[in-house]
């Protein structure tokens, strides 16, 4: 778009030299920051969530208001230049908690929008694995994809007295919006809530459609008596699966990181003492 047209539409200010863009933490916020950088003809040093911001020396900051339409234009731009797969990578990378994520995404967008580098339509940008701009984005994406998989594996629902199924999780990336489609399809017969304790986001499925609720405090009614029984069954099942001759906790720790093991019913303190008994040579699995 011509500069004159942009000036007519968007208020332009004096360009800042060392500027950090702050946003509200949503994907829209990040995309709007990228839009802002083009409008203001600035190269931001940092693009971070407002609550994560740590000012650098002599740096000014600028909060960018989220605007759905602007974000949509950035999305269409990325999809036009690099394809929808690239936008998928951007969505995942943006969910990463790493404070560098904003700048990495910004550099990637600059790269695909650049007429000298991004215009070759015959080439998929995501194949440039050795290019630092692309590989940094894909590294962020891969970490989020792994965290997504962990969420699909280790989220555990319990049945509440009001009929809702509730799960807590503590992922180190904002993955609840990314896994809601999976859970909403699979458990479409039960209304459920997945609450992310790290990012204070709840994914709510009401039996028809899902939505996100940002909330710091969450009050949960107590579980049904049945639910506690089923959980105990599950623990008992897990305990009896172990084969002593193959005992290999290093391998398990590789698959279930300690931070996630805490929230698993089968891995709580009770099991850990029982497992210790195995390593000490006692019998195993006959206890609650």
């Amino acid at each position: 778009m011509e500069l004159a047209a942009i000036e007519g539409k968007f208020a332009q200010r004096e360009p800042l030299q060392h500027v950090a863009y702050l946003h509200d933490g949503s994907l829209e916020g990040l995309l709007c920051c990228i839009f802002e950088a083009y409008v203001q003809r600035e190269v931001p040093e940092d693009i971070v969530r407002e609550r994560d911001y740590q000012p650098r020396f002599e740096q000014s900051s600028f909060f960018v208001q989220s605007d759905f339409n602007r974000a949509l234009r950035v999305r269409r731009g990325i999809e036009r230049e690099a394809g929808s797969q690239a936008f998928g990578a951007v969505v995942r990378a943006a969910a990463n908690d790493d404070p560098c994520a904003g700048v990495v995404v910004y550099r990637f967008v600059r790269y695909v929008m650049d007429k000298r580098t991004g215009r070759d339509k015959r080439r998929n940008v995501l194949n440039d694995l050795a290019n630092p701009v692309v590989s940094d984005l894909l590294a962020l994406e891969r970490r989020v994809a792994n965290e997504e998989e962990k969420a699909r594996q280790f989220v555990r629902f319990s049945h509440l007295e009001n009929g809702v199924w509730f799960a807590r999780c503590c992922p180190n990336a904002n993955v609840v919006p990314l896994v809601m489609n999976h859970f909403a399809a699979r458990f479409n017969i039960q209304p459920f809530i997945i609450y992310d304790e790290n990012h204070h986001v709840a994914g709510v499925y009401d039996g028809e459609d899902w939505s996100l609720v940002a909330d710091d405090v969450i009050n949960v009614p107590s579980r049904t008596a049945d639910d506690a029984f089923i959980e105990k069954l599950w623990q008992r099942f897990y305990d009896s699966l172990s084969i002593e001759a193959r005992y290999n906790p290093e391998l398990r720790r590789h698959f279930i990181p300690a931070r996630l093991a805490r929230s698993l019913p089968e891995m709580e303190e009770r099991s850990r003492t029982a497992l210790k008994a195995v390593s000490d040579g006692e019998s195993f699995g006959r206890r609650i």
Partner: peptide
Amino acid sequence: GKLGNTLSSGLCHSFTPDGRCV
């Protein structure tokens, strides 16, 4: 209206103390 689906890649939900997937 029906419970469940399957994924072609499969999904492991837990791991025994010997590291086999459950």
